[in-house]
Design a protein around this nucleic acid. Structure first.
Length: 732
DNA sequence: CCCCTTGGCGAC
DNA sequence: TCGCCAAGGGGA
């Protein structure tokens, strides 16, 4: 281009109006500033607050901080805090959010103008921004990563539609004005007492609701009673008690002038909550489900953001939903693994909502049929209070539970070790005389794992050595890793060609039950089943085979439940195996009639004794407490804070070496990871994992040091890959 | 000793 | 990508 020196013209860039901190001798470019492109100088900057502080969507950890830009005059009104913008950052144009408008910048170089305000609607509320910062800090992640989880992608058509619905005034004044009136005060009479019947069975239950009504922020870990809520109309009972109670808590919060956020592990539970809310007279509800696709998801997000609903109910990602005047956060199903975010920095809904409750002064209600050791830790630390029913109430509402261990059945003689012992068969037959019977099977599919019929060697895929299974009675066995069909299979060890089942899935179980109970309807609720996962079944007698988490609600409740292959549920080596097994069993048991109405639950198969005992006693709290004590003794989370650093050996070493808290007492490993999954390509560098373990009080410091180390790593462009996970799922 | 070229890196 | 800065070499 032209070499002719241009005259100094700093005013064209607005430098006289908007310097960095006003120093006497601005150095560098600010002094010798020469506009590269004439166009830059032609647009004047905003008269008021000409600097926009912007959070950019940048990947590298060392760039994780706000940047200042000039606000061109035409964007002066639109570039408010919370709006999406695009701005030039070095070579490229990147997306971001304005987080603040300021008079000056502390940057002492030249400021570049914002490129574009993508939309004048401020989608990133201050509360969500603060939450995202807290989550990034807690999990040693970047703000950009968390914001990617928190704010769904924009959908222009939906945005137009929702903003038009707001009315011109509201759209101009922004969400603050829209929420000034508070949640629908018109729909609530304020008459709470008497309306909280679902809570009257609990110690502290009604008090919790009174606090909600009064606008306070109580925090509780709640173990709901099993069973269904009494039907609101003529139909059969089909709303779980827990959902009805959550709806009442929501109503109390709304009556107190605040809004509610409810997070559940899957879409069916979301739907159950929405139904319960409807029966409680709360209709102003928004569903926020990631599975719904971009348009409905963004519509729900915007409606929540603008305070158009009193209650937001959704799956995991809803934990970040912007809800003005938030008064209560509820997490249902704590212990389900869908509540752990699979994307960096891997936050868990339980912790995110706890941070939210602190930051936004909202009440916190953590509920689950079982109890996780993390929930127990919230109680043990005094952060939350327990809401539970007295033992005699639990006994009155719970079904009768029996564990059919082989020891117990030995008296029955042969057949005791069968998958369906005589006692279980009899219980099912008796139950079928009164209504539907639930059969819980830990595995989906037909025969998910098969072995050689003669020598019992596990059958493996010839191509990739993955385990073989059968998806249908007639089809050839198939590899569960690479999907290849293994026609003409022959055992490597003994040459036999016959296969036997190692694991029996839900589909095969249904087939077997059909033979054992001729003439009885058998339905399957599982992802592998033709009809998929069922939400609800009728009150007629039927065998309902379901995998854990896929149990339909039976109208009026099940007469009995058989929990098959119990040993499979407690066979894992994970730390949470026992509490997870109990969670599955209790979730099924909660759908069965109480004992006085003949409800019966049989646990079949030799499961570990501890969770078995806890099921028989109907005591998830006792099991969690026992596990927490053990974790304390072993210095395992949640008694301590841990962070896993996984990746190439060199990269892991480098990241760990820069962490000041990492010493001989706090670092475990690094150890080589066995690669469970077949990896494409030849032998890649082996992955290693180091675990950092510090007292809880140093958790924040550990995360900060890891963040700093990752920032150095990205600034230096150190090679390889590293993943940092604070409180990784497999260690909880 | 100073100026100009060159390479690396930070990026508002 | 783009431009700043620091380092280094060559010329005065």
């Amino acid at each position: 281009m032209s070499d002719i020196p241009e005259p100094e013209q700093p005013a064209l860039l607005g430098l006289d109006d908007v310097p960095g901190p006003r120093k006497d001798a601005p150095k560098g470019r600010a002094r010798s500033g020469r506009p590269g492109k004439a166009a830059l100088g032609t647009t004047p900057v905003a008269d008021e607050l000409p600097v926009a502080r912007v959070v950019l969507d940048l990947q590298p950890a060392h760039l994780d901080r706000p940047y200042d830009y000039l606000v061109p005059a035409p964007m002066a009104d639109d570039a408010r805090p919370g709006v999406r913008v695009r701005a030039r950052f070095g070579p490229q144009e990147v997306a971001g959010y304005v987080v603040e408008r300021r008079e000056t910048s502390d940057h002492d170089g030249r400021l570049v103008p914002l490129k574009r305000v993508v939309s004048a609607d401020p989608v990133l509320s201050e509360a969500v921004l603060r939450l995202a910062r807290a989550v990034a800090d807690r999990y040693a992640g970047t703000l950009a990563d968390v914001l990617r989880l928190a704010v769904p992608p924009r959908h222009a058509r939906v945005e137009k539609e929702v903003l038009a619905g707001l009315g011109a005034d509201d759209a101009e004044d922004g969400p603050a004005a829209a929420s000034d009136a508070g949640p629908g005060t018109d729909t609530v009479s304020g008459a709470l007492p008497g309306a909280v019947s679902a809570w009257s069975a609990y110690l502290g239950g009604e008090a919790f609701c009174r606090h909600l009504l009064a606008g306070e922020a109580p925090r509780a870990v709640w173990t709901p009673l099993p069973g269904l809520a009494p039907p609101a109309g003529d139909g059969p009972a089909h709303v779980p008690h827990w959902a009805a109670a959550v709806a009442e808590a929501a109503r109390a919060t709304i009556a107190g002038g605040r809004r509610v956020l409810i997070v559940a592990p899957d879409a069916r539970d979301v739907e159950r909550v929405v139904t319960a809310l409807g029966e409680a007279g709360v209709d102003d509800v928004v569903r926020l489900l990631a599975d719904d696709g971009p348009a409905p998801r963004y519509r729900a997000f915007l409606r929540a953001r603008h305070g158009l609903a009193d209650v937001v109910v959704g799956t995991r990602a809803a934990m970040f939903a912007p809800v003005p005047d938030l008064g209560l956060v509820v997490l249902w199903g704590d212990g389900e693994d869908t509540l752990a975010e699979p994307h960096a920095p891997y936050p868990h809904a339980r912790d995110v909502l706890a941070l939210r409750s602190d930051l936004e002064g909202a009440a916190y209600l953590l509920a689950s049929p079982g109890r996780t050791v993390q929930a127990q830790a919230l109680l043990a630390s005094g952060w939350a209070r327990e809401i539970a029913a007295p033992r005699d109430v639990v006994r009155a509402r719970a079904p009768r539970v029996r564990a059919l261990t082989s020891v117990e059945l030995a008296a029955e003689g042969p057949g005791a070790a069968a998958r369906l012992p005589t006692a279980a068969w009899r219980a099912a037959r008796d139950g079928l005389a009164r209504g539907p019977v639930l059969v819980q099977v830990p595995r989906t599919g037909y025969l998910p794992v098969v072995a050689c019929a003669r020598c019992r060697t596990a059958a493996r895929c010839a191509a990739c050595h993955g385990p073989l299974g059968m998806t249908r009675p007639t089809a050839a066995p198939q590899c569960s890793w690479c999907g290849r069909l293994a026609g003409g299979w022959r055992c490597d060890e003994c040459g036999d060609t016959r296969l036997r089942a190692v694991r029996v899935g839900s589909d095969r179980t249904a087939e077997e039950l059909g033979r054992a109970f001729p003439g009885t309807t058998v339905r399957v609720s599982a992802s592998s089943a033709p009809g998929g996962v069922l939400d609800r079944v009728g009150a007629q007698p039927a065998l309902v085979v379901a995998t854990p988490g896929a149990e339909p609600v039976a109208d009026g409740g099940y007469a009995a439940a058989l929990l098959l292959d119990a040993a499979v549920s407690t066979a894992g080596t994970g730390l949470a195996t026992a509490t997870e097994a109990l969670h599955r069993w209790l979730a099924a048991a909660a759908l069965v009639h109480p004992a006085h109405a003949g409800g019966q639950v049989l646990l079949v198969g030799d499961a570990a004794p501890t969770p078995t005992g806890a099921l028989v006693r109907y005591d998830p709290a006792g099991l969690a407490d026992r596990e927490l004590t053990e974790r304390r003794e072993l210095d395992l989370p949640p008694a301590v804070r841990v962070a896993a650093v996984t990746g190439d050996r060199q990269a892991v070493d480098a990241v760990v070496a820069r962490v000041g808290l990492a010493g001989p007492d706090t670092v475990l490993g690094p150890v080589e990871l066995p690669d469970a999954e077949p990896r494409r390509g030849a032998t890649l560098d082996p992955q290693v994992r180091a675990v950092l373990r510090v007292p809880l009080a140093q958790g924040a410091e550990l995360a900060a040091q890891l963040r700093a180390s990752l920032a150095v790593r990205s600034a230096r462009r150190e090679g390889g890959t590293v993943r940092v996970q604070v409180d990784p799922k497999e260690m909880l």
